[in-house]
Simulated scan of single mutants.
Amino acid sequence: MDALHWWRQGDAVTQGAALVLLAMSVASWVVIVWKLRLMRQAVTDVARCTAAFWQAPSMDLAAQRLQSFDRSALVLPLVIAANSIASPAVQDIPASLATAGSLSQRLTRVLRDALHDVLGRLQFGQVLLATVGSTAPFVGLLGTVWGIYHALTAMAGAGQITIDRVSGPVGEALVMTAAGLAVAIPAVLAYNVFGRLIGRIEADLEGFARDLRELLIDTAPVQSLAGSTEGLGNASRPAAGPSQDGPAPLGSVGA
């Protein structure tokens, strides 16, 4: 069966269903290829970035190292968000609801927002794959049912129905069902595989964000205690002032 012949024999509904399936197939394969590259980078980058972060001597050097390792920008946004709260320069920011609360609360808020942004980029395209996988078979079935109805109506008008006249149009109509399944199966498989990978990456990022939050909370009291100890040391020193001489010798009084 020639595809051009099948296209000419179909009516507007059949051709419309075929175009919808073609658009679904192109869109799903574009997303599959793009997400396959993204997932491959993400799995590698998260492992490398977390190892490089914990080996860095300070937060600033860790952020500099992550710029060369984090190609997908998955771990670096978390570090930047946490550093913006834990940095001493944040004390110069005017008071507002964004800066209200304890250090633990502010770190939780900014890390949660940064994590949602990262996961939103990883989840991009999943809705499209799920939609294509669930609706493409029904679009193909619609084309099949309409094609069979159209073929039977045409044969009924001819006045003579034989198996040869029925098998050809019905077989052509069943092509739409096969096309719908061919579009849906790759989308469903890709959705499940990518969903599993995203779940693994999400667990790693949540664990890193939790460890980063605890690190900054634990180190904050140590820094403040060091500052207060330095202040106490300065306060214990005698204040500089004019020296007071002791009582004058008795001989000088007589003079």
Rank of each mutant, 00 (worst) to 15 (best):
Met1Ala: 13
Met1Ile: 08
Leu4Ser: 11
Leu4Phe: 12
His5Arg: 09
Trp7Ala: 09
Asp11Arg: 10
Ala12Glu: 09
Gln15Ala: 02
Gln15Met: 05
Ala17Trp: 03
Ala18Asn: 05
Val20Asn: 00
Leu22Phe: 07
Ala23Glu: 00
Trp29Asp: 09
Val30Gly: 15
Ile32Glu: 04
Arg37Asn: 07
Met39Val: 08
Gln41Ser: 10
Ala42His: 00
Ala42Gly: 10
Val46Pro: 04
Gln55Trp: 08
Ala56Met: 06
Leu61Asp: 14
Ala63Lys: 04
Leu74Tyr: 00
Leu74Gly: 04
Val75Glu: 01
Pro77Tyr: 10
Ala81Val: 07
Pro88Ala: 13
Pro88Ser: 10
Asp92Val: 06
Asp92Gly: 06
Ala95Arg: 12
Ser96Phe: 09
Thr99Tyr: 08
Ser102Ile: 06
Leu103Glu: 11
Ser104Cys: 07
Gln105Asp: 15
Gln105Lys: 03
Gln105Asn: 09
Leu107Arg: 00
Thr108Arg: 08
Asp113Leu: 08
Leu119Pro: 01
Arg121Leu: 11
Gln123Ala: 15
Val127Gly: 12
Ala130Trp: 06
Thr131Pro: 02
Gly133Leu: 06
Pro137Trp: 00
Pro137Asp: 02
Phe138Ser: 14
Val139Ile: 15
Leu141Met: 11
Gly143Cys: 08
Trp146Phe: 01
Trp146Ser: 04
His150Asp: 10
Ala156Trp: 00
Gly159Met: 04
Gly159His: 02
Arg165Ile: 13
Ser167Ile: 10
Pro169Ile: 02
Pro169Ser: 08
Gly171Met: 11
Leu181Phe: 06
Ala187Trp: 00
Gly195Phe: 05
Arg200Asn: 13
Arg200Gly: 14
Leu205Asp: 03
Leu205Trp: 07
Glu206Pro: 02
Glu206Lys: 10
Glu206Ser: 15
Asp211Gln: 15
Leu216Gln: 02
Val222His: 11
Ser224Leu: 15
Leu232Val: 14
Ala235Gly: 03
Ser236Leu: 14
Pro238Val: 11
Ala240Gly: 10
Ala240Pro: 10
Ala240Cys: 08
Gly241Val: 08
Gly241Met: 13
Pro249Phe: 01
Pro249Ser: 05
Pro249Cys: 00
Leu250Lys: 12
Ser252Cys: 09
Gly254Val: 13
Ala255Gln: 12
